[in-house]
Design a protein around this nucleic acid. Structure first.
Lengths: 237, 237
DNA sequence: GCTTGTTTTATTGTATACATTGAGCCATCC
DNA sequence: GGATGGCTCAATGTATACAATAAAACAAGC
């Protein structure tokens, strides 16, 4: 609520583009922070009311979210928060393995004191959020951490891919993760910074690989049955 | 022309979604085939007229193309075909190195006779197009080849990334490539199929790496000067 | 003659009205 | 009594009208 109102208020002076960007982030963050859970419907009228713009702008934002696979747009049914399938989850984590690990050498090479300090600060804030029981915040900070590291590689294109993958990972954790158990172990991130700061791309890559494997292994990959059991399948139609 | 009219005609019966998809592909193909050159303006009215739908639908399509970095949307100025910078070009080819090469082992593992035959057919058609002087068609077939291989890895997410990267590569070739010289050597693709069919992911990966490096090396990475030279810079403002 | 300020025009940004369609509900028929 | 058909409602898809703005053409002054 306060989030939406803040956006609405600041919108009066801001230009249209910034307003749209702010609304986009507000919705995106709500999804990544799992305050909007997979399957939740996102009606255009409702969003338009909340943010004080017309449906036209909302549709633009929903489309953008749909292209990032954060929301699913079913024709004539509208938008809902994407519920990733088990296959998609595997694809996403395989992709993260390939890209994030492959980026480590470049990151290690470009790592300076300033960057290391920034990452340590992010890791610290993440731990604090965890201690304070702010699960939503911690989830987002964890994703931000991975994205920031990818950005440090200097390759904006791959960083954008990682950003998309991290957002989707949050959705995957919401569906297949155990409640209360976050994906990333908190000390993992600090260890990773150490390897990167030492310029050891190889070790950082191997560590990142284990880190991602650990997250994936913590998931319980059971496809949820449909709310209304499919009688055709049961009775062998 | 005939392309647009074909879309327009088939649209009368097709559902709205399919029509949009067809128009999207028509524009996307025109860009990838370099019939629409970087910098070309894409006015909403004009596109709406050509394809027989309102600006609303066109804007949706332009947004999608913008998110794939094929068109650039400047506020109040409208859409134009993206003119990649040298930095972006480097990012794209580095990303292709990482992803496409990393995918080769998986592709080699899943490669069957059927898949190999399909790829050989694509490579053959590409050579034919080259012989017939159909440069636009050859460019697209070459991109399609790389995308199809990525799809054979079984990872839809990474395949989508590769698709985006290949489209952007076509734009890069249009700006920095030498006219008449296509990116991919024609026999390269056949060689690659051989390694993949033999299940030799390592060699395929190494070959793909050289293949991509060769394309990148063939570019002349000179940033075009602005049409109106910047007097401030020249006279040290 | 070149620069600068103004008007005009062309193009995008936004909202709203209308059409379309899927879902839920109710009545009727079997 | 249950199921099917039609009806109503709610939500999205599409187009168009209006507003805002940047580029361009033009005119006036230096």
């Amino acid at each position: 609520m306060s989030n939406a109102q803040a956006v609405k208020r600041s919108a009066s002076k801001a230009e249209g583009d910034e307003r749209h960007e702010a609304i986009y982030r507000a919705v995106s963050d709500a999804i990544v922070e799992q305050r909007l859970k997979p399957g939740a419907r996102l009606r255009e009228d409702a969003l338009a009311d909340v943010f004080g713009i017309s449906r036209t702008g909302i549709r633009k934002i929903l489309q953008r979210l749909a292209l990032e696979q954060l929301v699913t747009l079913t024709p004539r049914r509208g938008a809902s928060v994407t519920r990733p399938t088990a296959d998609e989850a595997k694809d996403v984590f395989d992709a993260r393995q390939l890209i994030e690990c492959g980026l480590m050498p470049d990151v290690a090479r470009r790592m300076g004191e300033k960057e290391a300090a920034e990452l340590r600060d992010m890791a610290k804030r993440e731990r604090q959020a965890l201690r304070n029981g702010e699960q939503s915040v911690a989830i987002r900070l964890s994703a931000d951490f991975h994205v920031r590291i990818a950005q440090l590689s200097g390759n904006a294109t791959l960083a954008a891919f990682v950003e998309s993958l991290c957002s989707r990972s949050s959705l995957i954790l919401a569906v297949y993760g155990h409640p209360g158990h976050l994906g990333c172990e908190s000390h993992d991130h600090d260890d990773l910074i150490g390897y990167l700061e030492a310029g050891n791309g190889e070790r950082a890559s191997a560590f990142m690989s284990r880190h991602l494997k650990a997250i994936e292994a913590s998931l319980s990959m059971v496809e949820e049955e449909e709310s209304a059991p499919d009688l055709h399948q049961i009775f062998g139609g």
